[in-house]
């Protein structure tokens, strides 16, 4: 790990100014659960760390008005256990509680979690050693070096949104729930504040898999907002893992419904663990909208979400697993209607 300076930013404006002054060699650090880990793995090499975890007010959780507003440095634990979130938006609370161990939830922030990087083992474990490319080529880590996962050990990799350059899966749970809830990301950068719908925040890998976020250099996530909706109550974050708890998703689904009796009035469906970005499925939503929800219809919606999926060497099981996770999530969410 390279020697670095560490400073605590007193305000978001000061953080952004310091970042600009460092001319590309700085990183913001909040919980550090991902960044510090990547520094230990030789993937991130900042010369300057700007700590944004003590910025006054940036940990506020506001639930009074028409929107839920989560400060960028609010802890995952604190958002998950906020009564309004826990009781009226289970999809949000569950996505946070299933995302990490309680230790990590006490460290990681809801803003930083949006930027968590892939768990692709070739990305994480291939850096350093004998050449610039590292032990394993990786287009995300060293653009243009190639992809070791394609044709390799790709059991955990994506089946949706992949490209010839990268099949790494987006690791997050919280971003998937936010995708279903049409969240807005508030940022502050050198050019001032900016808001972006979460649907526009993540980039498909295409031929530039190292560019994962539509975040301008020096921009800091200051808050996340979610418009209040009755769909929050009939919602769930359903996550299937290799073990019962504390593991990344093999397949997950964030589902939120508005129901008229047994009939689905509106549906929001997003997927995790199966795609290169948090993945909204309008196709699945269209299948259940306007119809009484039955297990058969739910599974048909699940299958529709994977119509364009492409399995690799070892991950094709995710196509059927993912469809069934959606189907189960739809039933769980529907059972929670008022």
């Amino acid at each position: 790990m390279r020697a670095l300076s560490y400073t605590v930013a007193p305000s978001a404006e000061a953080a952004v100014a310091r970042f600009a002054a460092a001319q590309g060699s700085a990183r913001y650090i909040a919980g550090g659960t991902n960044l510090y880990d990547l520094m230990k793995l030789g993937i991130e090499h900042p010369a300057h760390l700007i700590d944004v975890s003590r910025i006054d007010g940036m940990d506020a959780i506001e639930t009074d008005g028409d929107i839920l507003r989560f400060g960028g440095r609010a802890l995952m634990t604190d958002v998950a256990y906020t009564p309004v979130v826990r009781d009226q938006y289970p999809v949000l609370s569950e996505s946070l509680l299933k995302a990490a161990s309680q230790q990590l939830r006490n460290m990681a922030t809801v803003g930083g979690n949006l930027l968590q990087r892939t768990r692709c083992m070739y990305f994480r474990n291939g850096a350093g050693s004998t050449s610039m490319v590292g032990v394993y080529p990786c287009n995300k880590r060293e653009p243009g070096s190639g992809c070791s996962a394609i044709g390799g050990l790709d059991r955990t990799h994506a089946v949706l949104g992949t490209s010839e350059a990268c099949t790494a899966v987006a690791p997050g749970d919280w971003p998937v729930a936010l995708m279903a809830m049409d969240a807005t990301i508030e940022m502050l950068g050198p050019e001032g504040p900016r808001n972006l719908p979460i649907a526009e925040f993540y980039r498909l890998p295409g031929d530039t898999p190292h560019r994962e976020f539509n975040l301008h250099p020096g921009e800091l996530v200051t808050a996340i907002t979610v418009r209040k909706t009755p769909a929050g109550r009939a919602s769930t974050y359903h996550k299937i893992r290799d073990r019962e708890s504390y593991a990344f998703a093999l397949a997950s689904a964030a589902v939120a419904l508005e129901m008229d009796g047994a009939t689905v009035r509106t549906a929001r469906i997003a997927l995790g663990g199966v795609a290169t970005t948090p993945w909204r499925s309008r196709a699945a939503e269209a299948i259940v909208t306007g119809s009484p929800l039955t297990p058969e219809l739910a599974l048909r919606a699940g299958r529709a979400a994977f119509a364009d999926a492409r399995g690799g060497q070892h991950n094709a099981f995710k196509i059927e697993l993912g469809a069934r996770v959606i189907a189960d999530a739809l039933i769980i969410a529907a059972e929670r209607r008022a």
Binding site: G31, G32, D37, D51, Q103, L104, N106
Partner: peptide, 10 residues
């Protein structure tokens, strides 16, 4: 007062 992973705490 809250548990954290000290290995990932700067």
């Amino acid at each position: 007062g809250r548990p954290v992973s000290s290995c990932l705490t700067l």
